[in-house]
Design a protein around this nucleic acid. Sequence first.
DNA 1: AGCAATAGGGCGAAATTTATCCCTATGCAA
DNA 2: TTGCATAGGGATAAATTTCGCCCTATTGCT
Lengths: 115, 115
Amino acid sequence: MYEKKIPLSLNCGLDLIAEVLYGKWKIRLLWFINDGYKRPSELQRKIPDASRRVLNVQLNELEAHELISKVIFPVAPPKVEYSLTEFGKTLIPVISVLGAWGDENQERLRQLILK
Amino acid sequence: MYEKKIPLSLNCGLDLIAEVLYGKWKIRLLWFINDGYKRPSELQRKIPDASRRVLNVQLNELEAHELISKVIFPVAPPKVEYSLTEFGKTLIPVISVLGAWGDENQERLRQLILK
DNA sequence: AGCAATAGGGCGAAATTTATCCCTATGCAA
DNA sequence: TTGCATAGGGATAAATTTCGCCCTATTGCT
């Protein structure tokens, strides 16, 4: 795994939440898991732009941060299901607020971002 | 400026808000500007971990996205003041929600993040 | 036998972001 | 005159994140 060279700053709530949500696909993973897409292959199909490698890595991080939990079914072919922990569920309203702001300002943002 | 090589995905509100908030210091800049720290040098003192270069870059991006606006006073030594636009102000409640979640779960997060 | 789906890790390269260093300019204070 | 504060950009290096390719394993279908 990669060793950070620049020390973390964990001063305030904003630093802390950033530590667990910062990652290109993490918010989306949480969202889709909350939406009922539990299996890695389903999530990959919902997020086709992400390489499967990174989804695995980010799922592992979300699990390490206790936002999701994982059940491995001892069958072949392998079957795995993720779900939000109670802690993870408390993030859903936060993510809703983010998404809502983006939706409300959709046109304007699209225009601004595309220069 | 840097030219992106991987196409943006701007499908949903979450993608859109990420486009304007993703950046190590952006949220903090918005927060402090809202808090009344208007001048670049003040902001640099409030965020000593960031190099002044990156703060400038991120301030420019926030301005390009119309979240903040800039007034240049034609004096020497130079004086500049930033403030939130009306659009930028609508982000403050969103940022509050993020910070509140982080604050509420402060101990747990600190422990999880530090392994 | 050959191929697809399932899950996931190793590893190196590419993409992207952030940090560092250096330079310009003006006015004021010691 | 030297040094500091002000604001900010260019160029380049370093850090970090994400991508892409390859390999393992099992079951079932054709």
